[in-house]
Design a protein around this nucleic acid. Structure first.
Length: 299
DNA sequence: CTCCAGGGATGAT
DNA sequence: ATCATCCATGGA
């Protein structure tokens, strides 16, 4: 008979499914009543029951040294310590923000591994979330190390060293298109030590952004995503096509001409010290409530 | 079929 | 600084 190895973690003010569907990570998949995925190199099952998470993990591939206990790893990954009440209370009191805030109750900005977050957002340029997920799945299955979780195999995100060994064509075969060159070049910079992603955590927001933007395939938007999702810079405000649409339509409906710089300055000042959280709520609300265009058009 | 997607790099104003 | 153009791919 099977032993229930699951552990329980208190998780108030948290919505697991909402958080995993919000376009931060791209690899978690539904499994039974919960989700399976990796947290760093650990294959993990997570299931929410009310305000408690049930978690268990797969066996490590080989005898390993002592590792942090899984509940602490999960709690840190999902940022269960973020004071969500205070964060939401810091949002501006305008109807657009309040609607998004109410819609996204329990959504948390996760603490992702640096390389994994950087690499996936390099592959995200001009891609829908569904396709970013597909690219992540292919890269993991082809180049990532396997882990076993019960009956199923989970793949860790490939390391910078592994990607750096590949040829551009290997990545193009993973449907990366023009992004292949950028992912490869950035992987080689991280792999050979020209950039130390962990050391970058010391830098101020502006210096961190500047350093990230030196990496091939990283501009302001991707840099802000990586700052927000992997460096805990909760003021970073990525502006993608969805957010730009929201800002222009909801906050500047009568301004035909509006420079990108003006949008950036408005976002930085209007949404408060946790602007990144506000941005994520606006993004997810817009993406989930904007009706898809009907497929059949008159001719 | 067309339109669009969690953009970046480059070159011209 | 700001804008135009190109870059691959596949879902809807």
């Amino acid at each position: 008979m099977k032993i229930d190895r699951s552990q329980r973690i208190p998780a108030p003010d948290f919505d697991l499914a909402l958080t995993l569907d919000s376009g931060q990570t791209f690899h978690w998949e539904k499994a039974g009543a919960g989700f399976v995925g990796t947290i760093g190199d650990r294959a993990t099952y997570v299931e929410q029951r009310g305000s408690v998470l049930k978690v268990h993990e797969g066996e490590p591939p080989s005898p390993t040294g002592r590792r942090p206990a899984l509940p602490r790893v999960v709690a840190r990954y999902f940022a269960l310590d973020h004071p969500l009440g205070k964060i939401c209370a810091s949002f501006p009191n305008d109807p657009v923000m309040q609607t998004a805030s109410n819609y996204c109750r329990g959504l948390r900005i996760m603490r992702q591994p640096r390389w994994e977050c950087l690499a996936t957002f390099i592959t995200s340029s001009m891609k829908q979330v569904a396709h970013i997920r597909q690219i992540s799945r292919i890269l993991r299955r082809r180049f990532g190390e396997p882990r076993w979780l019960g009956e199923e195999t989970i793949y860790v995100y490939p390391t910078p060293n592994r990607i750096a060994q590949l040829r551009e064509d290997d990545l193009r075969e993973c449907a990366l298109g023009y992004r292949a060159k950028n992912l490869l070049a950035t992987a080689r910079m991280v792999s050979d030590g020209r950039v130390d992603l962990e050391q970058l955590a010391r830098l101020s927001d502006d210096n961190l952004r500047a350093q990230l933007c030196k990496l091939p395939g990283v501009g302001a938007k991707v840099a802000n995503c990586v700052m927000l999702f992997a460096y805990e810079r909760l003021h970073a405000f990525p502006i993608d096509v969805w957010i730009e649409r929201v800002l222009r339509q909801k906050y500047f409906p009568r301004r035909r001409k509006l420079r990108a710089g003006e949008l950036r300055d408005f976002a930085a000042s209007h949404f408060g010290v946790h602007g990144g959280y506000a941005q994520q709520y606006l993004f997810h609300h817009a993406r989930k409530t904007t009706p898809r265009r009907l497929s059949v058009r008159p001719r």
